[in-house]
Amino acid sequence: MTDPFAYYRRSPLQRGLDSQGANWAALADEVAYAERFAGDDTLPAIAIADLSPLPRLGFKGRGTIAAMQARGIVLDATPNRCFPQPDGSLCLVLAPSEVLLLSPLDGSGERLEQLNASWNIDDGERTYPLPRRDSHAWLAVAGTAAPEMFAKLCAIDLRLHKFPNLFIAQTSVARMNAILTRVDLGATPVFHLLVDSAAAQYFCDCIVDAADEFGGGLVGLGAFQKLADG
C-alpha cells in the first residue's frame, strides 16, 4: 500500500482520511490519493470522495472564453454552466471571464499541463492561469439522497428537478463559500464541490456528518471511477 507521507503533494484531507482507514495509491504525477475504504464494494446511500489530488486549473480575464476555444476547449460564455469535454474532463464556466478546468477521474492531467504551458503573457490574450489545485479542495458527493442531505447545509434547492444536470451554483455550503456543480454519472446524481483548501477538513467533516443520517459515508476515488465506467 502506498504511504501518503512519502509524497510532497498530498490532499489537505490526507490526515483525516488516513485516520478513517483509507488505502492509498498514487497518480502518474506522484500525488497520493485515497483509492478505497473498507466496504467500498457496496456504495453507501450517499458516497463522499476526496478528489483533491486530481489536477485542476483555472483561467481568468476578459479574453478567457476565446482563449479556451482557441485551445480546443468545448464551452460558451454562459455563466454557471459545466461543459464536459471529450476526454472526460470538465470545464466550469463561472463567469464570462472565468473558467475552472477539472481533470478526468482517472487523474490524467496532461491536457491541463499543456494549457498552462501554452499560456504566454506576451500573447496579449487577456487571460491568465490560476493554480486551483493549490487553492481549492475538491469533493464529490453521489446518491439520490444527496439533495435532501444538502438541504441541511445549503439554501439552494438542489432537488433534481430544480437543479438540472451540468448547472453550477456559487453559494454557501456549511457556511463556507463553495462552487457546486452537478455532473451525473449514468443514473447516479453526482455533485462536485470546490472549497478553500485551508478549511477542507472542517468542510468534509460537515458533509460526512450531514450524510450520516442517510447512511452516507466516505469512499475512495476508485468507487467513483467504477461509477464512471458504468
Rank of each mutant, 00 (worst) to 15 (best):
S103H: 08
M176R: 15
H161N: 15
A142H: 04
A25F: 12
D29R: 05
F203I: 01
E213N: 05
G88R: 11
G124P: 02
A140Q: 05
P79D: 11
W138R: 04
G21C: 05
P44A: 12
P84C: 10
T171A: 12
R159L: 03
G220N: 06
Q170R: 13
P131G: 05
S89I: 03
F163H: 05
V219R: 00
V173N: 01
R36H: 13
Q201E: 15
Q20V: 11
A47M: 06
A155E: 15
L194R: 11
G39R: 03
E113K: 12
R10I: 01
E98I: 05
A45D: 10
L139S: 01
F83D: 06
D212W: 10
F167T: 12
E98L: 04
A77T: 11
P164T: 04
F5C: 13
F5V: 07
L160P: 06
P12K: 02
D41C: 05
G61P: 03
F214A: 02
V99R: 02
A146L: 05
D29G: 07
N120W: 08
L17H: 13
L153V: 08
L139E: 01
G39V: 06
R133N: 13
A117R: 14
E213T: 10
R10W: 04
P164S: 14
H161L: 13
G88I: 07
L27G: 10
V190N: 04
T188A: 13
I207D: 00
L94N: 13
T144P: 03
A67E: 02
S97D: 15
G39H: 05
R111L: 06
P44H: 03
A26T: 15
V195S: 11
E113V: 06
V219H: 04
G143H: 00
I121Q: 15
Q201H: 13
R126E: 14
S108Y: 05
C154D: 02
Q170G: 10
T2S: 12
I73C: 11
T188K: 13
I168S: 01
S19N: 14
L112N: 03
A77N: 11
Q20Y: 13
H161W: 07
D212A: 15
L75G: 08
L57G: 03
A67S: 07
L227I: 10
Y7Q: 10
